[in-house]
Computed example of a mutant assay.
Amino acid sequence: MSDTTNSERDDATIVDAETQRQAVRERYGTIATDESSCCGDSLSCCNDTELEGRTEQLGYTADDIDSIADGANLGLGCGNPNAIASLEAGETVLDLGSGGGFDCFLAAEEVGEEGLVIGVDMTPEMIERARSNVDKNDVTNAEFRLGEIEHLPVADESVDVIISNCVINLSPDKPQVFREAYRALRPGGRLAISDVVMTAPLPAVARNDIESLTGCIAGAATIESLQTMLADAGFEEVQIELKEESDEFIREWDDSRDLSDYVVSAAIEGRKPLQ
């Protein structure tokens, strides 16, 4: 997370969408090409024990972590979308912002050989890393596609479940992300994502700071905004459950302020009507 103590001012410049996308691509491209696993959203790397501890804080079990070969788990995210997705054998799953493939490989185990998991990421380095992890994990039912989550490289009504882990907050056009998710889902399909939501207004300098935007903080939406965006996209049975225990790891995201005063991790669910 960003240390903004030297740049805190009231006249912070609003970051335009293209600048934000490029900054996100550069940040996560750097993480993807690092040879060691990284913790949190920072670029400081940690040892295996620290990485496992932080991953368990997000809601994964030791069995989850042990079942995936090294290199897929980068210590990113703010929850465990697979834990709320209730995946079934034979389903097609789409992961928005798939990173190194950790959640995809866990989902692949759940849906089995008759199912399919598609990971989409806009960072070429992440796609390359995820594809290199396919053989390491002996997975035959997962694939990775380069693309933006606002313009998904999948056909209409072609997936059963959409998951995502602390990625949609990074988009400068969240309503479009949810419209695309709705388009890609089959009738009756469901959305099961982990993301951060804003619980209190951020200081202006943090709200418009590029490192806060790329670090899963400044782009967080309020619960009310998310509910509106999901409903406008067509989703029903929308549920947003705050994970108050997430303050334990969110506090570690910035040395200059306690970010848990402003954001909290949440499980966000919705369903596309049958017709």
Rank of each mutant, 00 (worst) to 15 (best):
M1Q: 12
N6F: 09
R9K: 13
A17G: 11
A17S: 15
V24I: 14
I31T: 07
T33A: 08
D34Q: 14
C38S: 14
G40F: 01
D41W: 15
S44K: 14
C46Y: 08
N47G: 15
N47P: 09
D48M: 10
D48V: 09
E50L: 11
R54T: 07
Y60I: 01
A62H: 15
S67M: 12
S67G: 07
L74V: 03
G77V: 01
N80K: 01
N82P: 04
A83H: 11
A89L: 06
T92F: 01
D95S: 12
G101E: 00
F102K: 04
F102Q: 07
F105E: 03
F105P: 04
E110H: 10
V111E: 07
G112S: 12
E114V: 06
V117F: 10
V120R: 03
D121V: 01
M126Y: 06
A130W: 05
K136Q: 13
D138C: 01
D138Q: 14
V139F: 05
V139A: 10
G147C: 07
H151V: 00
H151W: 11
V154E: 03
V154P: 06
D156K: 14
E157S: 13
D160P: 08
D160Y: 02
V161A: 11
I163K: 01
S164F: 06
V167E: 05
I168E: 04
P172L: 00
P175W: 04
P175E: 09
Q176Y: 00
F178N: 06
A184L: 07
L191Q: 06
L191M: 10
V196R: 06
A200H: 13
I210V: 15
S212D: 14
C216V: 00
C216H: 04
A220T: 08
E224H: 11
T228Y: 13
E244S: 14
S246W: 00
W253A: 02
W253L: 11
R257W: 12
Y262M: 00
V264W: 00
I268T: 03
E269A: 10
R271A: 11
K272I: 00
